[in-house]
């Protein structure tokens, strides 16, 4: 029996992204591109999403207007795409903001331990358990002018981002904390501490890079939720205000025209549905991808 020479460990085979990952990513990319190029699409089709044309109200879908027109004669396809721009932007920015807050709270809790951790987790559990939508309605209904904040247009969208971030951080905080706890006692963290690294340095350079995967998954799943919450708030008239379109307030307008023009209600809802499913699938696919990569390692 001959002893085999010690071979170098084989390079780890790359894990191919799954069909779900590619599919959902592709759908989201296409949606985002379509929404953010809405002005050019309008120009190409020779239509206008803002010009009121009262002689052409609630036109059925046709060659001129692919999805017909709304109650003011505006091209509905462009309205929906422009609405998507706001909804997707709020979803992305809101989820990133929520992920930042959640990561900070989760990491600090896990690293500090003891009372800080207990308090952070109590707060997290509480926000998850509370009937959050009724409480958010109150936050959404306050008058920003009374706090000395600007109103209208972009400030309005910013307000919604803050509100959805307030709602979205706890799930990320939980994930970040449990991931951080699992690397808290690893040798590289202990080594860094033994070498006298400060807490923020250890967290930033050693803990965060090793917990980024699960946080990314939680944040991706969070985008879907944030898109849903924004659409609910806008649907209830407390989110993005017309004339700035968002999928939620388009649906709210369509509600009263349900009988005459059902398409006005069906399309924006379908867009929300597809977007949320795609983000959830993307998050799920990412999770599976990371799991498999770890299994290969």
């Amino acid at each position: 029996m001959t002893t085999e020479p010690l071979a170098r460990p084989a390079a780890r085979p790359p894990v191919k992204p799954s069909a779900i990952l590619i599919g959902s990513g592709g759908v989201l990319l296409a949606l985002t591109l379509l929404c953010f190029t809405a002005p050019w699409i309008a120009w190409l089709l020779g239509v206008d999403g803002t010009r009121v044309d009262i002689f052409n109200r609630l036109a059925p879908p046709g060659a001129d207007h692919w999805l017909g027109t709304d109650e003011l004669g505006r091209d509905y396809l462009i309205r929906v795409l422009e609405g998507g721009r706001v909804s997707l932007a709020v979803g992305l920015i809101g989820a990133v903001a929520a992920a930042l807050i959640g990561t900070a709270i989760g990491l600090i809790g896990a690293y500090a331990g003891g009372r800080v951790d207990a308090l952070a987790m109590r707060l997290t559990d509480l926000v998850i358990a509370l009937p959050i939508l009724p409480l958010l309605l109150i936050v959404a209904a306050i008058d920003p002018a009374r706090l000395g904040l600007p109103t209208g247009g972009l400030a309005d969208v910013g307000r919604i981002v803050v509100i959805v971030a307030l709602f979205g951080w706890p799930t990320v905080a939980r994930v970040a904390r449990s991931a951080a706890l699992s690397v808290r006692r690893r040798t590289y963290v202990l080594a860094a501490e033994a070498l006298g690294a400060r807490a923020h340095h250890v967290l930033w350079r050693h803990v965060l890079p090793n917990v980024a995967g699960p946080i990314l998954v939680a944040a991706t799943l969070g985008i879907g939720n944030v898109v849903l919450v924004e659409s609910v708030l806008s649907f209830l008239g407390l989110g993005v205000q017309p004339p700035t379109p968002s999928w939620g307030n388009l649906l709210s307008d369509a509600q009263t025209l349900l009988v005459q023009a059902p398409l006005l209600a069906i399309v924006p809802g379908l867009m929300i549905f597809v977007t949320v499913i795609a983000f959830n699938a993307l998050g799920d696919g990412l999770q599976a991808h990371l799991d498999r990569r770890r299994a290969v390692r």
Partner: peptide, 22 residues
């Protein structure tokens, strides 16, 4: 399951109204 928790409640409600009531 994915469809169930991704569907916007108010949209599903409107669709059901459209089908069963209207």
């Amino acid at each position: 399951a994915f469809a169930g928790f991704s569907v916007p409640a108010f949209w599903l409600a409107l669709l059901l109204i459209l089908l069963f009531a209207v």
